[in-house]
Amino acid sequence: MFEQIIQFLATGITVGSTYALVGLGFALIYNASDVVNFAQGEFVMLGAMLAIALLTAGWPLPLAAIAATLLTVLAGLLLERFAIEPSAGAPVVSTIIITIGAAIFLRGVALLLWGKDFHSLPPFSGDAPLRLGGATLLPQSLWVLGMTVLLVGLVHGFLNRTLLGKALLACSFNRAAAQLVGINVKVMLRLAYGLSAGLGALAGILIAPITFSSYEAGIMLGLKGFSAAIVGGIGNPMGAVAGGLLLGVLESLSAGLISSGYKDAIAFLFVLMVLFLRPTGLFGHQVAERV
């Protein structure tokens, strides 16, 4: 039994760290613009599909991964410039619809470029399972975990240690005040979209060897990433990471110990309970309503 639980935890943390990376992207964009970007999952898909396409075209894996990430960053910047910027100040529901439209559009592009088949990426360092205590892990899972730690650390350092990062955070607290102290809010917005798209793309490339990818792969990941960001308290990057890990472990434990059919219902029931008890997520700021 103990051995089983170790396996459930190992699985949960691996799956959870992909949710965490996607959730981190949600949090960054929300911080900078108050917009929840429902196309975040599509960035993940785009990164994976571009890397697979470039690899198939004969590029070496590291180069394909870098190029795929940069192309996805470009897609993120285009989205910001042509869909988000023109609709500044629109109500929450309108921006939700715009990003949902963008998600459908990106899926449509992927469908035309790569068809409907599932594609996979070869694992970075082989397929031989590793034994850790009672659990077995794929080497690729270690890549996912390690890169998640690294990326989260980098984002954390960037936000708290660099001037640019602090400027980005300043925008999230009070945009008008940030503008007044000389921060170019527009540039910060683009930075946030580019960063989120890049993070999404990297997440996609890391998990593609385990989960495969297709033009529709972003829907589920986007949903889970959104849940992670909300549970953690939207706008709190580290909260999103914690939310993602929590959600992953919860799903795996409920699939293993309670019911595999109802595991998604259990995970969302947990999300609801969190919100009922803490209406702004686990680590969200309590904001007073402005009158």
């Binding site: 459930f8 691996t14 799956v15 385990i210 595999s260």
Partner: peptide
Amino acid sequence: DESYGNKDTDITAQLTK
């Protein structure tokens, strides 16, 4: 008699059982 969601990306929990 285990089940999974058709969009799930990891089935190891069920297989461990």
